[in-house]
């Protein structure tokens, strides 16, 4: 195992072509947020805070980084994006709709009887959903097997696993972190959403896991940490993690803000499961439109 550099400030994307690319991703992120609101409104509540916080990262993935064919979600050459955190389902469905894997009109069926879009994301229900998340601490263990399998097949696709800061409480995540490093899984990128929120309160007050990056680094991972709500930081970081030469798995910790993009949700008491009043949905949509 080679030594790893400490987390450095990410490279900035500068020229106009890159600025155009960033603008395209930012617009995708706002549409992903709007898609998430459409779903949450069906329920009148939900994991909307998390969906808004992860939208920028999902936009970088689904509008730029992931190799995928929207009309062939099981295409052998695709990058596999595994969502551990099943309750982020509406964010993933929002991104899959943005990528054209599922029709946007279907989003209004979210968590209703008979829908392909259940409240917790499951592979058996939804095209483009690779694993059944929800029981936390599983995703990275499965990602290891997928990454090993891809290597056996000489398939150069990447495996992404999106997990949360709270999920790091689960010991299985660290079993998996050790296994990934031991087997040199350089085709694996873990993305940890650090929104400092889990079911019972602030992650830092429930079971503090900081320093997260240093923990992964100590396990043998190449690690970076950026503002997860700034696509100009997320994009180059993910590009770098995909291209570094180290024979090691990679981890990007993204600092995100629960409810990002809708000010009254950003300022609301931070809750795992947010209530939104009926009249607030339109206000939220309007704010996103203004930012676009």
């Amino acid at each position: 195992m080679s030594t790893h550099q400490p987390a450095a400030a990410p490279a900035r994307v500068a020229d106009s072509a890159d600025e155009h690319r960033l603008q395209r991703i930012r617009e995708a992120a706002q549409r992903i947020r709007a898609n998430a609101l459409v779903q949450a409104e069906v329920q009148g509540q939900g994991y909307i805070g998390q969906a808004l916080d992860i939208a920028d990262v999902l936009a970088v993935l689904y509008a730029d980084q992931l190799r995928l064919r929207p009309d062939d979600p099981t295409w052998e050459g695709r990058d596999r994006c595994l969502l551990s955190i099943g309750h982020y389902a509406l964010a993933l469905y929002a991104a899959l709709a943005e990528a054209g894997v599922i029709p946007r009109e279907e989003l209004t069926t979210y968590a209703t009887d008979g829908s392909r879009l259940p409240m917790s994301a499951m592979a058996s229900y939804t095209p483009g959903v690779e694993i059944s998340g929800g029981s936390l601490g599983h995703g990275l263990t499965i990602a290891n097997g997928v990454a090993l399998g891809l290597k056996r097949k000489s398939n150069d696709a990447f495996v992404y696993n999106i997990l949360s800061d709270g999920e790091l409480n689960e010991g299985s995540t660290w079993e998996a972190a050790a296994v990934a490093a031991h087997h040199g899984l350089d085709n694996l990128i873990a993305i940890v959403d650090f929104n400092n929120q889990q079911a019972d309160g602030k992650s830092s007050e429930m079971l503090g896991m900081e320093p997260i990056g240093a923990k992964f680094e100590a396990f043998g991972w190449v690690t970076r940490r950026v503002d997860g709500n700034n696509v100009a930081e997320v994009l180059p970081a993910l590009e770098e993690l995909r291209s570094v030469e180290d024979p090691a798995p990679r981890c990007l910790v993204v600092n995100t803000k629960l409810g990002k993009g809708v000010d009254f949700l950003e300022q609301r008491e931070k809750l795992h499961f947010m209530q939104v009043a009926p009249e607030e949905w339109k206000l939220a949509h309007d704010q996103l439109k203004e930012q676009a």
Binding site: E130, I131, G137, H138, L140, T141, I142, A143, N144, G145, V146, A147, L148, G149, L150, R152, K153, G171, S172, E175, A176, A178, V179, H182, H183
Partner: peptide, 25 residues
């Protein structure tokens, strides 16, 4: 053969991932 180490959760998760890629673990 893969040695996963004394980590049974990681063992079964990795087996699942390999099966998803078409192998028979």
């Amino acid at each position: 053969f893969y040695q996963i180490g004394m980590a049974e959760q990681a063992l079964l998760g990795a087996a699942a991932g390999l099966a998803m890629e078409g192998f028979i673990p």
